[in-house]
Write a protein that binds this DNA or RNA. Structure first.
Lengths: 339, 339
DNA sequence: CTGAAAGCGCTTACAG
DNA sequence: CTGAAAGCGCTTACAG
């Protein structure tokens, strides 16, 4: 036990009576070492409490086995759960997660890039963060793959994993139509984000097929307060809506709270449908009908895409879309049986 | 622009016509460089897109500026919000967060220690994770400070930051008593955790001062299902309770859902009080009376304690307790005015 | 103020 | 299978 607690391969080598290279080989999978040597080294390492310094190893190999994870908001329950699953999946593959919180300030990601590059991350995952061309270029220059989770950036040449958002929007349109709704409003996700746009587009297309248009469209910007205000606006109007598709669950909860505060009943007076199916959607207080983003599959696809690009830098970007089923609960009127 | 995108100080030195040491000094705060040299170097660095390799720097200085953050559960909203604030605070101090998800498996933390040490973290923050003596010893041996966030471990000699949990429990007892409740039950936090125990103890002591004892005590183990079942058990009894103090908000939401599912009204039939004051507690669906853990202050204390120990390893551990105010909302009967 | 040199803890050809 | 040696990209005494 040294004083400083900084045990090196050199210390182990001395104790085991072998060279430092031998020690290194014992801890390098696939390197050739005689069983006897390995045993001696392991014994020495154990009594000394030795573990190879990952930083030193990273310098030599050029692989840090660190993935930079950039996240903007954690108050929307979708993200904490995603982070949890992403971390587990990455840990299982022997990678480690360097976490960065980004504000939604457009320049923030550019600034974070400095740190990301300085720590030699092998890859980057962003969740709901906009990527500037500058960031894209710097990643490309540095040869660091990036995959966007739950947001796409068409034309950026970046990999992304999302649910089939437009299709999800269509499913909601069809379901609400089947439930007999005619005045269907949309409090959308932020229209600056692909997820917000695609879900809105899906709804519009779905309604169009029935010869309808949205009764109203308001950008809720993935924000609770904006969504609640939008709900009030929709119901205060002389021609109130009778069903609201909300761009994500996080806003939908605020919409339901807001509706109830106005004395309205969900779904008797207004049907509400969300998007995400966060755990809270199943809780008694909301019992929210929503489109489920299959988190495990999205996480697996994200990790798989990223690691594939790390292993083979020549591999091109890919945009993965995963089908999102509608989950029926109590916040929206059901179509009548047999109709 | 090199092919590999791996620009080194050497490259910058060549372009700027100075030595590699000079380049290093320009990027080392406090090192002495002539303004002219610095200008040349910065210009060269800029055109090349150079940033010092943090890993290499870490090897020399022995400071990685990485903090290991170990978290168990992210479904309780308290933790995501804590992580967000912790990350921001650490980023502001020039540190980076290596995130580890731990299951609550007692051996998990021991296993994570290998990675934590291998990556040469400068310090560790754990949130709701139990620390074995073995982990404590290894941290001590390696000279790595650790602070426990939102959990204490008396006698472990580890630093911790919690709210004044026992006092919080007392406040709830006094409040419920003042509201005229006599049959006060407790669905506690996990009794294996200091937070769970201290809040329970506070309630018991507070009730004892009025000559009362809890009407019932059930360990909810910080688990929604267990808490919901406990609520049913409490109300199904021949002698039902009329107020429930729940060990944290996360369980309290499940309790309220469960109560409502039984056709009971909150607070007319039963008062419910939580602990944490997560953002969701203020949402319309729950409007939960609760004890607020002052997150910003707890985060600041955690970061401050950790960094102080990093700067001065001789500094002893400290247990910080922060006062937690009761927040009155609609889920619990209020004491009558002027009584 | 500046450069040459040592060294942080490793991995990996290279000989043997 | 093994050791000596080079080298990853930096910081930091040490001379000048």
């Amino acid at each position: 036990m040294s004083i400083a607690g900084r045990i090196t391969a050199q210390d182990v080598a001395k104790l085991a009576g072998v060279s430092q290279s031998a020690v290194s080989r014992v801890f390098t999978p696939g390197a050739s070492v005689a069983p006897k040597t390995a045993a001696k080294v392991r014994a020495a390492a154990k009594t000394l409490g030795y573990r190879p310094n990952s930083l030193a190893r990273a310098m030599i190999t050029g692989k840090s086995r660190i993935i930079g994870l950039v996240v903007a908001y954690l108050d929307n329950q979708f993200y904490p759960v995603a982070i949890e699953k992403l971390s587990h999946a990455l840990q299982a593959k022997g990678y480690h997660v360097l976490l960065f919180m980004a504000s939604n300030d457009p320049g923030e990601m550019d600034r974070l890039m400095d740190d990301l590059l300085a720590y030699q991350v092998d890859g980057i995952i962003t969740a709901s963060v906009a990527i500037s061309n500058d960031v894209t270029r710097r990643c490309a220059d540095a040869g660091i793959p990036l995959v966007m989770f739950n947001r796409g950036q068409p034309g950026s040449g970046l990999s992304s994993v999302t649910s089939a958002n437009a299709l999800g929007g269509r499913k909601v349109a069809e379901f609400l139509l089947a439930g007999g709704h005619q005045r269907i409003a949309h409090i959308s996700g932020w229209q600056g984000a692909s997820t917000g746009r695609d879900r809105a587009r899906g709804l519009i297309e779905g309604l169009a097929e029935a010869g309808l248009a949205p009764h109203a469209m308001i950008d809720g910007m993935f924000n609770r307060d904006k969504a609640a205000a939008a709900a009030r606006e929709l119901m205060d109007s002389p021609d109130p809506t009778d069903a609201i598709f909300v761009g994500n669950d996080h806003m939908a909860f605020a919409v339901i709270d807001s509706l109830r505060a106005m004395g309205l009943r969900v779904p008797q007076d207004v049907s509400v449908v969300g998007y995400d199916d966060v755990p809270m959607a199943a809780w008694g207080a909301y019992d929210l009908t929503t489109v489920r983003q299959p988190l495990v599959r999205m996480v697996d696809a994200t990790v798989e895409t990223l690691l594939a690009q790390i292993d083979d830098p020549a591999r091109g970007a890919q945009a993965v879309e995963i089908d999102a089923p509608l989950i029926l609960r109590g916040s929206a009127r059901l179509p009548e049986e047999g109709t």
